[in-house]
């Protein structure tokens, strides 16, 4: 059911150039490095409890059931965003939308690879940088490694994933990426304080 709408097939390669937002932008200051990450495959996955097992199997990663957690396997990460909502990110070029297309249990999978832009924030001042605009408690007790949460940064919505004690992945919508990167850049300059 709910067949993937935008079917990617390896056969027909694009004849035009892909121009990701902020491609390759980086900033390094004392204590923190920001980098716009390469494009990834992403879906917004929605499903009731009963479908989670089948979808986990199809995706090859166990969809987390606990709030503010994520699960990762073989370059694919599933982030709990809500009680029936996951953001699935594949960084090794495999299309989770195609994997879900074969699943018959009740669910909704929508391709959003181009909707989001990812920025990595790495370094001892990474949490302070994000805390310039994000009101959540980013201490390791409250947001441990692997924790994921939709939240806000300044005036933009972001999805935050802690990939290590001093490393975060910040996802935002494409047209907010300039704002988010600029915000993080300005904040980074003061984060070592």
């Amino acid at each position: 059911m709910a067949k993937a709408a935008a079917k990617e097939s390896a056969a027909a390669a694009p004849s035009v150039e892909r121009r990701p937002a902020l491609a390759g932008q980086e900033l390094s200051v004392t204590g923190v490095t920001l980098a716009v990450l390469p494009p990834a495959q992403r879906i917004s996955l929605r499903a009731p409890d009963a479908s989670v097992a089948a979808l986990s199997k199809a995706l090859g990663v166990n969809l987390p059931r606990k709030p503010k957690t994520s699960a990762a396997k073989a370059g694919r990460t599933a982030l709990w965003l809500g009680p029936d909502e996951w953001l699935v990110i594949d960084e090794v070029g495999k299309d989770p939308l195609a994997d879900c297309a074969e699943v018959t249990v009740l669910h909704s999978a929508v391709g959003i690879s181009h909707r989001n832009v990812a920025i990595s924030v790495i370094g001892p001042a990474a949490a302070a940088t994000i805390n310039s605009g994000c009101p959540q408690d980013l201490s390791l007790d409250v947001l441990p490694v692997g924790a994921a949460s939709r939240t806000i940064l300044g005036k933009a919505e972001i999805v935050l994933l802690r990939i290590a004690a001093d490393a975060f992945r910040v996802e935002c919508w494409r047209s907010f990426s300039d704002y988010v990167f600029t915000f993080l850049s300005e904040a980074a300059g003061d984060a070592a304080a």
């Binding site: 310039s132 300044g154 005036k155 047209s175 907010f176 300039d178 600029t182 915000f183 300005e186």
Partner: peptide, 15 residues
């Protein structure tokens, strides 16, 4: 705080 100039409000631009 940071909310001035380009960070006063997000400026959204299309592809």
């Amino acid at each position: 705080g940071h909310a001035r100039g380009p960070l006063f409000d997000p400026t959204r631009k299309t592809a």
